[in-house]
Design a protein around this nucleic acid. Structure first.
Lengths: 209, 209
DNA sequence: GTCTGTGAAGAGGTTCACAGCC
DNA sequence: GGCTGTGAACCTCTTCACAGAC
């Protein structure tokens, strides 16, 4: 398959989400409409979409549902099969807030397990998701073919836990801790904690907010 | 001041965090050590640092503390004055998990207020941070000179709430909802919810995790 | 010798501008 | 008229490679 540049991939991910929340599912959407919504130039949007090799939109805008499907197919983020399996590691207030609620519903991911070091905490939580002690990471991750983890442990043990996760087969980590993780090639980390997000906002914009 | 490219800014933000967690505070660090930790090329690291115009590291590596200070100064993310003021909007499980705990401690940001629509919820929460009804956004945000918000409300009201926040003076939003927000020029959004983060991992890497 | 700092070359992404289609 | 798709130009960021500092 054609190689899609990473900036384009990221925009397409966002675009896919935007198309989902556009309530006009039967209708069509044009590159300039998307441009108004996102701030990206219309040329960039057309280029991104053309990389998908669908050509469904000649002179008439893109059909919303078809475009969404094409993006999902190209980026391998279709919701089929219950989606890619992931797990939560660390069930403090933040971790357990992702257990309940609708954090994963309707997405291309399914929550297959959650882990904590404390049996106490596990017994207190009431959840549809199976909960385990972290001692069971080694068996549960391969058994359930989990490849993605959401890390919500205390900062001090974040690197150590990341190392363990990687050694058991995890290939992608959403990092909600304040620790910058060091991982081998082939493993992807996405930092999503508040301070990092805030710092990116301030650091990215010309500053002085 | 010289213009620092956005990719460099983002790396410098991360680098600053890495330097903080390097326990050798008096010591020096070289570009190749940083390269090993991050995976970025040593040339890129030297170029990034040279954009700061400090030149403190001729032939001997960089002094850790000085480098950290230089990055913080250039990106305007120094912790001084208690840091930039931000607020949490929406005190469900996720929002309230950021209230307690150490989410902001030691960062360049301070939590100046938190908001929810439900007086019930506000009264139940025990927090050092002042809590308000969202009807008070209009007065509290300008009064406390808050420029950053962490959005944790239900998806359905996220856009509407973002519009209100922007109109009251918020210039940066950390978005923990699953809604892609549309904001005017000059306002920065950083999406940090689980599904977006997971999708980025899958979409960014060559796929098939 | 080791390391930084930086012109110059190279790679990668974005935008322009227009042909082609409806 | 309005819209997509795309070669070509443009621009931005990265890497090379080496002079200069220690």
């Amino acid at each position: 398959m054609k190689q899609i540049p990473i900036p384009s991939r990221r925009r397409l991910v966002t675009l896919s989400q935007i198309l989902q929340q556009l309530k006009k599912n039967g209708a069509r959407v044009t590159s300039s409409e998307i441009s108004a919504l996102t701030g990206w130039s219309d040329a960039t949007i057309r280029r991104d979409i053309s990389l998908l090799c669908v050509h469904s939109g000649r002179s008439n805008g893109y059909e919303v549902a078809a475009l969404r499907e094409a993006i999902a197919a190209a980026l391998d983020i279709r919701a089929g099969n219950g989606g890619k399996r992931c797990c939560i590691v660390g069930l403090g207030p933040l971790g357990s807030s992702l257990l309940s609620g609708t954090a994963f519903s309707g997405s291309a991911f399914s929550l297959a397990a959650a882990f904590d070091t404390s049996m106490n905490r596990i017994e207190l939580l009431d959840s549809d998701i199976p909960l385990y002690l972290t001692t069971e990471l080694k068996t549960v991750i391969p058994a359930k073919e989990i490849t993605l983890a959401v890390l919500c442990v205390p900062d001090q043990i974040a690197q150590e836990m990341a190392d363990r996760l990687v050694s058991f087969g995890i290939r992608g980590i959403v990092n909600y801790t304040n620790t910058i993780l060091s991982v081998p090639d082939g493993v992807t980390v996405e930092n999503a904690n508040v301070v990092t997000a805030l710092t990116r906002i301030v650091g990215a914009s010309g500053s002085s907010l």
